[in-house]
Amino acid sequence: MSAAASIPMPDKGPIAMNDTSHTPAIEIVGMSKWFGSFHVLEDIDLKVKQGERIVVCGPSGSGKSTMIRCINGLEDFQRGRIVVHGQELRQRARALDDVRKKVGMVFQQFNLFPHLTVLENCTLAQRWVHKVPGSVAIDIAMQQLEKVRIPEQAQKYPGQLSGGQQQRVAIARSLCLRPSIMLFDEPTSSLDPEMVREVLDTMADLARDGMTIICVTHEMGFARGIADRIVFMDQGRIVEQAPPAEFFDAPREERTQRFLEQVVR
């Protein structure tokens, strides 16, 4: 895993847009958000290049999840702007639909549709949103399920799978839509310890394929192995961002040092 930094990175991922490879995948400028009078996010600036892998960490309540949920419009924000592949959120009503077609999201609680089979979970949005014909949607779904190594579970219902398997299905479900960016919101936090590995491995595969990834996680080993850059947040601000080696071995900020003392032994 620690060899991740030396993995050859194609300058364009297989599914990156060819004419926009110079624009950043995501650009957040001066974004602020309040819940009532509580300032959850304060003046966030973050630029993510295509194919870049960002891990966001920090204590709970620091606004990490809220920040990435703003990127695909699950949360609103009051000030600043977010631009995804040159498309500014909030500029026009349809922008959000376009952005959601390019940005996949994986949640802490998997959030599969419990009344649909694994396969149906994976084909649904393809057919309804992207108007892919049924048989093609199934082919794509099976490819992605193979990629996350559970094609044999295709006919089962989410309730019949383990947490780790459900999370891998959730990843496959997102991948079926060919997103160019994947957001992970604490994907392993509600898993049994022995299932964390299989999900992290799946994400590492994605990283190797050149996907742009923003992942909120407490898995510091994963962060060290996979991330190009680690963003540390506290109290709604980005305190520090640095490549993993620098972040773990020579953190500049005192707050970061205290956090690392708590989480890394």
């Binding site: 949640f107 949005a125 949103v129 479900r173 839509l177």
Partner: peptide, 15 residues
Amino acid sequence: EQVEAARSLGLSGFQ
């Protein structure tokens, strides 16, 4: 969360 999952997949309000 179910609603968020659907919206993040790009589904419309009715879907």
